[in-house]
C-alpha cells in the first residue's frame, strides 16, 4: 500500500524530558489512523510535529512525500488540521469563516462560492449561513470546523481530539463525516481518548510514556491482547 506518512525514529525532548521516544510508524493513503494514548503519553506532541507546529529533536519524517525539515511550505498546502480547541472564529459568520479559510488556502473565489453552497447544503446549515459561529450549537460548530479543515481538499487531515466534550450521538454523526472524507481519499490521522472511537479506525497505535506500544487493526489488537473491546486493550497496555 501507498505510504502517505512515514515516521522513522522521531524523538522530541523538552530538556531532560523525552516526550516522543523513537517513534516509528507509517500511515497508508486513505486510511483512518487512530493515534491513542493516555494524557501526557506524547500524542499531542507528535501530532504537532507532523503538522509543522513544532520541530522534532531528531528523526526522519515525510508527510505526503515531503520532507518535514525542508519542504514545510509544500506540506502545509497538503494537510488540514483541527485541534481540540475550537478552531473557527466566533465573531465571524459561518460564511465568513469558510471564505477566510478558502482565501488563506488560495482557493479561487468562484470555486469557493460553489463549494460553500455545496457544503452548507450537505450539512443542512444553509439557514445559518449569515449567523455568527458563537450562536451555533457545539455539534454544528464541530462539523463545520471539520468541513473547513478539509475545505481545500488536503491529502491528509490531522484531528487532535476533535470530539472532546460532545455527546455520543453527535460524536457518531461526526464520525460519519470522517468516513465520508476517508471515502473521498483523504487520509485521516486522529487522536482520541474515546475507545469506542478507536473501534472506528482502520488501524490504531497506542502510546504510553512517549513510546508506541502497539500498532495494528482494532481486531488484531483485541485478539493479541485477548480483550473484548479496545477499552480492555488500552488498559492492558497503559496499565
Amino acid at each position: 500500500m501507498d505510504k502517505i506518512i512515514t515516521v522513522k525514529n522521531l524523538v522530541k525532548k523538552f530538556g531532560a524530558f523525552t516526550a516522543n521516544d523513537h517513534l516509528t510508524f507509517d500511515v497508508y493513503r486513505g486510511e483512518i489512523f487512530g493515534f491513542l494514548g493516555a494524557n501526557g503519553a506524547g500524542k499531542t506532541t507528535a501530532i504537532r510535529i507532523l503538522c509543522g507546529l513544532s520541530t522534532p529533536t531528531s528523526g526522519d519524517i515525510k508527510i505526503a512525500g515531503y520532507d518535514i525539515y525542508r519542504e514545510t511550505e509544500k506540506i502545509k498546502k497538503n494537510i488540514g488540521y483541527m485541534s481540540q480547541k475550537f478552531s473557527l472564529y466566533e465573531d465571524l459568520t459561518v460564511s465568513e469563516n469558510i471564505r477566510l479559510y478558502a482565501g488563506i488556502y488560495g482557493i479561487p473565489s468562484k470555486k469557493a462560492k460553489e463549494k460553500e453552497a455545496e457544503l452548507l447544503e450537505k450539512l443542512e446549515m444553509e439557514s445559518a449561513r449569515k449567523k455568527l459561529i458563537s450562536g451555533l450549537p457545539l455539534g454544528w460548530k464541530q462539523k463545520l470546523a471539520f468541513s473547513v479543515a478539509i475545505f481545500h481538499e488536503p491529502k491528509i487531515v490531522f484531528l487532535d481530539e476533535p470530539t472532546g466534550g460532545v455527546d455520543p450521538v453527535t460524536r457518531r454523526k461526526f464520525w460519519d463525516l470522517i468516513y465520508e472524507a476517508s471515502n473521498n481519499g483523504i487520509t485521516v490521522f486522529v487522536t482520541t481518548h474515546y475507545m469506542d472511537e478507536a473501534e472506528y479506525c482502520n488501524r490504531v497505535s497506542i502510546m504510553d510514556a512517549g513510546k508506541i506500544e502497539a500498532l495494528d487493526t482494532p481486531g488484531k489488537l483485541k485478539e493479541k491482547y485477548n480483550a473484548n473491546n479496545m477499552d480492555e486493550v488500552f488498559l492492558k497496555i497503559a496499565r
Binding site: 509543522g52 507546529l53 481540540q84 473557527l88 466566533e90
Partner: peptide, 14 residues
C-alpha cells in the same frame, strides 16, 4: 488563547 493561531500556523500563511 482560542487555538486559532495553530490553525493559521498549519495553513500556508507564512
Amino acid at each position: 488563547e482560542l487555538g486559532t493561531m495553530e490553525i493559521l500556523l498549519v495553513s500556508p500563511l507564512r
